[in-house]
Every structure is written in C-alpha cells, then in structure tokens.
Design a protein around this nucleic acid. Structure first.
Lengths: 154, 154
DNA sequence: CCGATTTAGTTGAGAGTTCAATTACTGCGC
DNA sequence: GCGCAGTAATTGAACTCTCAACTAAATCGG
C-alpha cells in the first residue's frame, strides 16, 4: 500500500493559488473573446501567426512552430489546416527532410495579423500592464521565467 | 475614420507577457494532464467539485457555481450534465425560484474528490510553489488579486 | 547495408467549449 | 393585475483540443 503524506497548501498558498487561477483564466478568456470578436480567431491561432511572422522568411518547420507557440503537434496540425483553409498559411515540403513540412505565412496572413495586432496589444495593455506597477511587471517576469524553466524539465 | 495610436509593448513588457503566457499555459496544461491521467477529469470539472464541496450542504445554485468556478453558464450546464452522468453531482429544483436549479455534490462525488485531491495538490506544490520563494508567492498573490479585481469590472 | 528505434507529421474519434437561440419564470412599472 | 424587460438555465451546432493510432522517413547499431 502506498502511503505518502500530502503536503497541503497553507492558507497563504491556497489564497495565492486561487487568485492566480482566477486571474489568469479571466485574462485569457477576455483576450480570447476580444480576439474572436475583432479578428475571428482564437488566441492560439493568433500566436501561431505571430511566431511565423517573426521567423526568417516567415517560414518555420511544423515541429519548431509547435514548440514556440506552445502547441502540441496534433493541435498545430489541426490549426494549420484551418489557417491554410483561410488562406493565411501555406504548407511547403521541407527540402532537407522529406518527413518535414514548413508552414509559411502568406501575405494575406500577414495582413490579417497586422490588422489584428493593435487591438490585441491594446487589450493586453489594458487588462494586464495598466493594472501593474513597474516593480510588479518585473516581479511577474521573474516569476514566470522561473516557472517556465521548471516546467520545461518535466 | 478611426485613428488611435497603438501603445505597443516595451521590450520589457513584451518579455514579461510572453513569459507569463508560456508559464501559465504550461502550468495549466501540466495540471490538466495530470488530473486527466490520475482522476479521469479535466481541471475545470475538478474545480466544480471543489467549490461544491465547500458550499453549505454541498449545494449551490447553478449561477453561483458558475461564478465561483469561473465557468460560463453554458459551460457549467454541459459540465454538470457530465458530472451527473458520472454520479458525482445531482440536480435539484430550487424551492424559492422555479427557474433555478441546485447542484448537489453526491457522496460518490465527494469520495472521488477526496481521492483526487492529494495528487493534484502535490502537483500544484511541485510545479508552482516549490519553484517560488516566499517573497515571490506574496508577489504573485498580490499581482493576481489586482488583476482579478480589474477584470471583474470589465 | 539492414533491421530496429526514433522522429515528423497527420488523422479521426471523442471530449470540452463557445455562441446564439430558446424556454420558463421573476419582478418591475403603471 | 398586466405587460414587459430582465434573469436562470438549457440546448444544439460549430469549433477546438486531446489522445491514441498511424504512415513515412531518418538515424542508429552492428
């Protein structure tokens, strides 16, 4: 029989955890809703377009795009299929690896992104940065980097 | 014609935003996956059970449950249907408002929650609190509370 | 070089979420 | 009381995401 003492959360941790949960959920939901309303796409799709737009020649291997956009491969595959149907992304064969596919942001996709970006950035500013002091921004960055680092190991 | 200067993000804000996005997504994905694997339910369902378990008599009006669990009404409705099918929740008529429904956590549901909680709490501790100093926990709580407060207005 | 393992990417099914429409009831104003 | 705006909750369709299974190609060990 397995018997391990659970390290329950202290009241302070409990409060922190619930606040964090509520805040990040509300923030993401709000931004997602705004993006859906103004640009007709979920935030996950927006991020795919952003990452592609920053890549050299606006091209990225599927697996690399999955990594930087925080998607599973399967999710990315489905998403790119939709983005391709919308005409915002095209798939190309990889010349050096015949298993590979390269996602390429089209001009239409870039235009779409350029049109959506100001509104979205305004949302991020309004709902996140306008609420925080410079010191808190610094703290949040540090905390997020520590967490990201730790979660990458797992 | 609408013409508003976009207040773009500074490099520091950019970095913070992306880190936060990556970290919170990774954290939620990890906890969701663990909960799905160990308890066969997504985190959203787990939270519904938690909130019910804390309510007087383990009963809560649907709309109130939606509020505290951060669900839309529609989402909650679908979710409770599933939880009801699993035998963890029952719906009852509200005696004071004939439009109302009351969600009631069953004994099976409570047992299920009690079984799932230690593993989940361990995950929260491992992936979140073990990575942060007490000062950072304090900072994160404060930041989250500010954000929650602001997002509630919108 | 060859079989075994690993990696890249896709696919389909099932599960969860969203959005808009719908039903039913409450409570307000007159 | 009566009509009417607002509230409670559900529903179905469309969409997104997850998981496991699958194909195909690269790579590794002998």
């Amino acid at each position: 029989m397995m018997l391990v003492m659970t390290r329950w959360l202290t009241p302070d941790e409990q409060r922190t955890w619930r606040s964090f949960l509520t805040a990040s959920r509300a923030l993401m939901d709000t931004l997602d809703r705004e993006l859906q309303r103004d640009a007709g796409m979920p935030h996950a799709y927006y991020e795919i377009l952003v990452r592609l737009s920053e890549a050299p020649e606006r091209r990225l291997r599927m697996s690399e795009l999955a990594d930087v956009s925080g998607s599973s491969r399967s999710r990315l595959s489905h998403a790119v299929s939709r983005l391709e149907a919308a005409g915002w992304v095209r798939r190309e064969d990889c010349p050096t690896d015949r298993r590979g596919q390269i996602a390429h942001l089209t001009d239409d996709g870039f235009a779409k992104l350029a049109a959506a970006a100001p509104g979205h950035v305004e949302g991020v500013r309004e709902h996140l940065f306008d609420a925080l002091s410079p010191a808190q921004v610094e703290q949040l960055r540090h905390i997020s980097e520590v967490l990201t680092e730790r979660l990458k190991r797992a």
